[in-house]
Structure formats: C-alpha cells, structure tokens
Amino acid sequence: MKDNQGVFSNPAVVGPYVEEAPLKVPGLFDLHRMAMLLLSERAGREARILVVGAGGGMELRALAEARQEWRFAGVDPSAAMLDLARRQVGPLAGRIALIEGTVEAAPAGPFEGALCLLTLHFLDRPERLRTLRAIHDRLRPGARLVIAHHCAPGGAAAHWLARSAAFADRSGSDRDRAAASARRMAERLPLLSDAEEEDLLREAGFADVELFYAAFSFRGWVASAG
C-alpha cells in the first residue's frame, strides 16, 4: 500500500512489499485480473492506461502481461517504491513510463482507462477529491476508472479493520496484536463510508459507479468518466 506521507520511503516497508501485500489484501492477484477485465470493456487494443500509486509495480506487471498492446504511465510519490516497480516490470519496461510524483505529474492524456489500488485510503477527503478530479481530467469521456482500498463500510471501520488485520496474521496466534494493528489503522487512515466513497466519485465527475469487490475492510469500485 502506498501513501504520500513518507512511509514508503522506509526500506523496512519497501523491501518486503511485494511479498507481504498479497498476504494482507484478500484476493490481490484476482483483484488485478478483475481490474484488467473492467478496463478492457472500454479500452481499445492499443490503449494508454494511467496507474496512480504505481509503486511496487504488481498491478502494472499484471496488466502489461495480460494486455500486450497496452502502454502505461505510472505515477507514485515514492522513489523507493518506483525502484521496486522497475524491478517488478523487468522486460515489460518498454511499454511503461514511471513518473515520480502525484497524479498532477502524469501526462495530460487522454487515457483510455485508469487504475488506483491501495492508495486513496491514505488521503483525506479534499485531497482525495482533488486526485479523483485530476484522474478524470486525464481520461477520455466514457473511459473506466477502477479503484480499491480500505473503506469504513456503513460508516463503521473498527471491526472490519480488525478482520483485515486478522486476515494478515497468517499464524492466527495473536488476536491482541491484530486488534492493536486495526486500532492504529483506524487512527491513521482517513476512511470514508461506502456511501461517501460513491458520492465522492460522482462529485469528481464520474458516473455509472458500481461496487465490484468487497473483502473485509477493502472495497473496490468501477466508474466511467463523464
């Protein structure tokens, strides 16, 4: 997971990211495939796709392997995470431009699709709205946006975060530690309810907002640029 607070400049976080993320996010690799399929419904054979929060490179690699004609621009504020992304994409790098910065550093487009995974939950509501609007401005009309991140379903985050933390504890041996981790996440992350998430997408200019992924505290939506 990626933020703009400097956490992902920490080598202790960056180093094991690729190995640990699938253990923390239920069905992460399937989420990548679902995102590819949803984007493919509107994106053409030689589409340009914008990936926001691209550090780590796992979603870039998954999409680039599945759609060999697509080209990508990936932005992330963490240089260390972008270095990890470069290692992940390897021989696919010729179709992938990696850019250090927030979404405003991305090319103007227009792109035929956009993806933002495990990122928006780090942003407060004003910054999240600004980010979504900047993505919208870079998409062709009707192009798809796919997002997924921690949410507060029904406005109640605590017990869903605790379940996500328990999922990540593969030993299952320390419920107190999982509960403490959930409390830290609840304090640190400016989570929105599922209804607020959908309202924010519409406020940013998106339409046809649909939930497609739900896994404990994680939720994912697909929407179309108006």
Rank of each mutant, 00 (worst) to 15 (best):
R87C: 00
P107V: 03
C116G: 05
I147L: 10
L192Q: 14
L139H: 10
D176Q: 13
T119Y: 15
L120T: 06
L118M: 06
G155D: 12
A179E: 13
R140I: 02
G154L: 01
A80R: 07
A80V: 00
A158Y: 01
L115G: 01
P126F: 12
G142L: 04
H121R: 03
D83G: 13
R133D: 00
R170Q: 15
I135H: 07
A182C: 11
G94W: 06
D83K: 04
A157G: 05
R133T: 06
R183Y: 00
A106I: 08
L98P: 05
A79V: 03
G155V: 13
R133W: 01
A182K: 09
A168R: 11
R128N: 03
R175K: 11
R87V: 02
A186D: 14
D174Q: 11
A165I: 10
P190H: 07
R177W: 14
D83R: 08
W70A: 02
V89Y: 01
G74M: 06
D176Y: 04
G172P: 13
H121Q: 06
L191P: 07
R138P: 12
I99L: 15
A195Y: 01
H159Q: 12
T131E: 07
F72I: 03
M81F: 04
A80H: 01
A168H: 06
A195M: 02
D194F: 05
R175Q: 11
R71D: 00
R170P: 03
A157V: 09
D124M: 02
A186Q: 14
R177L: 15
H136V: 06
A93I: 13
A182T: 11
L191W: 13
P110Q: 06
P110L: 09
A97D: 14
L192N: 07
T131V: 11
S164P: 09
Q68H: 03
T131S: 13
A162M: 10
R140F: 05
L117S: 06
A73I: 03
R177K: 14
A157F: 08
D169Q: 13
R128G: 04
G172S: 07
R163Q: 15
A166N: 01
L132A: 10
R177A: 15
L132C: 10
L82Y: 00
A186M: 07
L117C: 05
A179R: 12
S193W: 08
A148N: 08
S173Q: 15
A180K: 12
Q68V: 08
R130M: 08
L139S: 10
H149M: 03
Q68M: 05
L132E: 11
L82S: 00
F72T: 01
G154I: 01
R184W: 09
G94K: 04
A166S: 12
G155L: 09
L92I: 02
A179N: 07
L192P: 11
L139Y: 09
G90Y: 05
L129W: 07
H150C: 14
R95Q: 04
R125D: 09
M185D: 09
R144A: 15
L123G: 04
A195I: 08
R184V: 14
R86W: 02
G101D: 10
F122A: 15
A157S: 14
E112R: 06
G94R: 11
P190T: 04
A134Q: 10
R188Y: 12
P110H: 07
I147C: 02
